[in-house]
């Protein structure tokens, strides 16, 4: 449990909180988590103010910078500054486009692969081989193909995030319960009905397991592709901040990326929660 690990470093007070959190309702546990984060930030604040280190500005000034850079805009623009619309939104758009391509192609390809025994047998070795390649190493290739810009970045994200979705979905589609498969055959369900009523729902839990990995990968790939050369985006802002030795802005970008990652995860979990209610409940019932 990560709260427990943090607690060990934060002393008895936080440890007490974490222990209390375990006995609380989920809402209470959330509260504890935020308290732990706030306590960590507070300690960092004290330490940074004492040190006056140029590399580690205090969190308060990072948050202030975060706010002024991106969220101090007019209400009409949802409080987004021009900087945010010019950099945050393109980065978010690339992530979503890349993930959408990965989800659609990976999902469809995974279904096809999982359902065709021959396809899986022939392609599996090759897919595993290609997957072993770290996706960021293909950035130079994509730069050569697409030149710098959004298509290159989207291609990088899509190519890097498609593997978890593809292989997990194929796994899910190939492991349909044999009794269900027999049921579909015995009742002579037409092919399309088997696909939408049996194969896709049965593969969905694995699809989402893959997508969860892809979501965290997509952030890495987004930042890396934008660092490699881009005229906007969060990676571009980080490049700028670094070359002008603006550590506060650099940290602000990092915090923003962390927030973005958490939001994407939460969105993925919400979709999963909604679509897989049967899965969660059926599993609880069985154990």
């Amino acid at each position: 449990m990560s709260t427990a690990r943090i607690a060990r470093h934060l002393g008895p007070a936080a440890r007490y909180l974490a222990a209390a959190g375990r006995h609380l309702a989920p809402g209470g546990r959330h509260l504890t988590r935020w308290l732990v984060i706030a306590a960590a930030a507070g300690l960092w604040e004290l330490w940074a103010r004492a040190q006056q280190s140029p590399f580690f500005p205090p969190p308060s000034s990072i948050l202030a910078r975060l706010y002024h850079l991106w969220f101090a805009g007019p209400a009409a623009h949802l409080f987004l500054t021009p900087d945010a619309t010019g950099n945050l939104l393109p980065s978010l758009g690339r992530i979503l486009a890349g993930l959408a391509i990965a989800a659609v192609l990976g999902g469809a390809g995974g279904l096809a692969l999982g359902r065709s025994r021959a396809g899986a047998a022939y392609l599996d070795a090759m897919l595993q081989f290609v997957r072993a390649l770290p996706p960021v190493t293909l950035v130079p290739v994509f730069i050569a193909i697409f030149a710098l810009g959004t298509p290159m970045e989207v291609a990088t994200i899509a190519f890097g995030t498609i593997w978890p979705v593809l292989l997990n979905t194929a796994d899910g589609a190939s492991s349909l319960d044999p009794v269900l498969a027999d049921t579909a055959r015995a009742f002579r369900l037409p092919g399309w009905l088997r696909l939408v009523r049996l194969i896709i729902p049965a593969a969905l839990p694995k699809f989402f397991a893959g997508l969860r990995l892809s979501v965290s990968l997509s952030l890495i790939l987004m930042v890396f592709a934008e660092l490699a050369g881009s005229s906007n985006g969060l990676g571009y802002e980080m490049n700028n901040a670094e070359s002008s030795f603006n550590m506060t802005s650099l940290w602000a970008a990092l915090v923003l990326i962390a927030i973005l990652g958490n939001l994407l995860n939460a969105a993925e979990l919400a979709a999963e929660h909604k679509l897989l209610a049967w899965h969660r409940n059926a599993r609880q019932r069985r154990t």
Binding site: V179, R188, P201, H279, A282
Partner: peptide, 21 residues
């Protein structure tokens, strides 16, 4: 092949029901 007009009650009835429906 599976004949027309067939219906089966499987021994594994619980696994033969679709949990998502």
């Amino acid at each position: 092949r599976v004949p027309d007009g067939l219906a089966v009650v499987f021994q594994d009835y619980s696994r033969s029901l679709l949990p998502w429906l």
